[in-house]
Amino acid sequence: MRQSWPISLLLFAAVLCAGCHDRRSAVAAGGIVSLTPAGTDLLMAMGLTSRIVGVSAYEPNDAMRRSLPKVGDYLRVDWERVTALRPAYMLVQGKRDRLPAGMREKCGELGITPVVLQIDRLADIDAAIKEIGEFTGTADAADAVIQDLAKRRAALSAGAPATPVSAMVVFSDSGTQVVGGNTFIDDALALAGGKNVVAGSGYVTLDREKLASLRPKVVFLVLAGADADSVKRGQAALAEAGLTKEAEVVPITDADALMPATSAYRLAEKMATHLKAAQ
């Protein structure tokens, strides 16, 4: 009897492990609520569209916004809807150590695993995809997307002008809000063969005099989802700042143009086309 207890313990452990494995499998097949448009984009790129059961109130993708329930945002989650949707995962974008305590608590109560995506730079997109893959049991799909992005990076690098073209990314129709260094958009610009003329870091505001002094060859006027009037206002503001004398202004209005997701590569590819021409 004394000798049988280790065997019993092993058997118990084996049963427990089997139970855990089953639970993981069940969760892996579960739905995903995305509180971040970037997360939704990454899920779609990974072929997990059918597993998305709810999206953010600010989802820019028309089809997703129309067809799926909107479950709020980072601070105001509609837990009633989330409970009804019974997701296994919740994608949130932000700093990992800054997830609101109540969100973690409520997710724990509902058996939802929060997946926090921290995407500041272009390289973070790969890390986010990998993290989604690990959490949702779709590592193969994640690897495939990461490889695809690596190919696109290689193609962009190969086709980039030998000497980087001076460029600037403006993201407001007032013409004064521009993209600085250490951002995924700056990374995308560099990948496309551009050299950002803005010296500051992050997303900065400049005045017209400063803008005019930068003298880029190409100005990307990225107004996500903007209408023609807004683009006209942006172009007029850049003309007033004297930027259109020497620079080519390229408007980009894709709804997801400023999203830190796979769409950043589409942005880089569009930029590359114009930078090559301006070389």
Binding site: P37, Y58, P60, G72, D73, Y74, L75, R76, V77, D78, W79, P100, A101, G102, M103, R104, E105, K106, F171, S172, Q177, T183, Y203, A224, L258, M259, P260
Partner: peptide, 21 residues
């Protein structure tokens, strides 16, 4: 980052549901 809620979320109050009990 452009496109995020940014400072607006701080300037207009709401009954936050992400507060711990």
């Amino acid at each position: 980052a452009p496109g995020s809620g940014g400072i607006l979320t701080f300037l207009v109050g709401d009954v936050q549901t992400s507060i711990a009990r």
